[in-house]
């Protein structure tokens, strides 16, 4: 039987570095690429999951090359298992590095989560307890990734459904320590904050007020699905399967009022709609970003879209 092999050879990138503008971006889906290119969609940037571009060749790379020729690109990993007990998978890291090298993304990000244990990949972003041991491990793993890439990465705050009794520090403090001690930046997922604080009965406003927002370089926005927990309390699922909730838009405005404009990604990964629905969500984020622009950032924003 044939196997799918990843391209591991690092040829010279054909792309010059292109920073991500402080505009709305959209998580790229293969089914939208033709329409995006044909209509020359006015989108600040696109973001892709690195794992979808680790094959050797074919249509995915042709599509992403065309996108990268016309737009700024951010690469987001979902399988590095930064929070895992096992050492970082060197093979996976080499594949990740090949994607980064090939496409020269403006930003690179991963999650505070684990997905691999022993040799099984669970295809989900699983939670970590906030202890000093996990903190040391995460810092080591971020260091391994950043050293291999020769670049800073951003780490995203998780959406969680459970609390670990053994946790000894808050998520906010944990994220701050990871960034301070590893030198990574932060990706702030506003929907994850709303999902997690609702699920754990805490205040999203207090979470945002205490977060080290000065280290945040990118925001994520997405939809969540409502459910209930064992005791009938609200339990939100980070489903990325619908429009962004009104309360998440309000939190987004709150964050921007503190940070100023930042690259803001619309994530929609399940029940993916037609392109115009996604483009409308991006327009909404752009409109909010425009209201938060300060001192000449407007002209910089216009120039930053490559057409």
């Amino acid at each position: 039987m044939q196997t799918i092999s990843a391209s591991s050879q690092l040829s010279q990138s054909i792309f010059e570095p292109l920073p991500i503008p402080a505009r709305a971006g959209i998580g790229l889906k293969a089914q939208h690429v033709a329409e995006i290119l044909e209509t020359r969609a006015d989108i600040g940037f696109f973001e892709v999951h690195a794992e979808n571009y680790m094959g050797a060749g074919g249509l995915p790379h042709v599509q992403l090359t065309e996108i990268r020729n016309n737009y700024a690109l951010s690469v987001h990993g979902v399988g590095m298992s930064i929070g895992g007990e096992n050492p970082i998978d060197k093979e996976h890291l080499a594949r990740f590095k090949a994607v980064v090298h090939r496409y020269e993304p403006g930003l690179i990000s991963e999650h505070l989560a684990w997905s691999t244990h022993d040799d099984v990949f669970y295809n989900d972003l699983l939670p970590v307890p906030y202890t000093s041991e996990t903190l040391s491990r995460v810092i080591d793993h971020v260091d391994v990734v950043q050293s291999a890439l020769g670049r800073q990465i951003l780490i995203e705050n998780p959406s969680t459904y459970v609390i670990f009794e053994q946790s000894t520090m808050s998520e906010v403090d944990f994220m701050g320590e990871v960034a301070k001690r590893s030198g990574c930046g932060l990706l702030f997922d506003v929907n994850n904050v709303f999902v997690s604080t609702t699920n754990h009965g805490t205040s999203p406003k207090e979470y945002i007020d205490s977060y080290p927002l000065n280290l945040v370089q990118e925001l994520h926005l997405g939809g969540h699905a409502p459910d209930e927990d064992d005791a009938g309390r609200p339990l939100l699922i980070d489903a990325h399967d619908r429009k962004i909730d009104h309360e998440v838009w309000e939190l987004y405005k709150q964050v921007l009022s503190k940070t100023g404009p930042l690259p803001s990604l619309i994530e929609w990964d399940n029940d993916v709609p037609e392109w115009p629905v996604l483009a409308e969500e991006a327009r909404r984020a752009d409109a909010i970003l425009g209201r938060n622009l300060v001192d000449g950032a407007q002209s910089e924003r216009k120039l930053s879209h490559v057409s």
């Binding site: 459904y161 609390i163 009794e165 805490t202 927990d229 064992d230 005791a231 339990l235």
Partner: peptide, 13 residues
């Protein structure tokens, strides 16, 4: 050690 906000075990979560 996996619990909900009330500190009780949370199988559904």
């Amino acid at each position: 050690g996996i619990v909900g906000p009330d500190g009780k075990s949370a199988p559904k979560r």
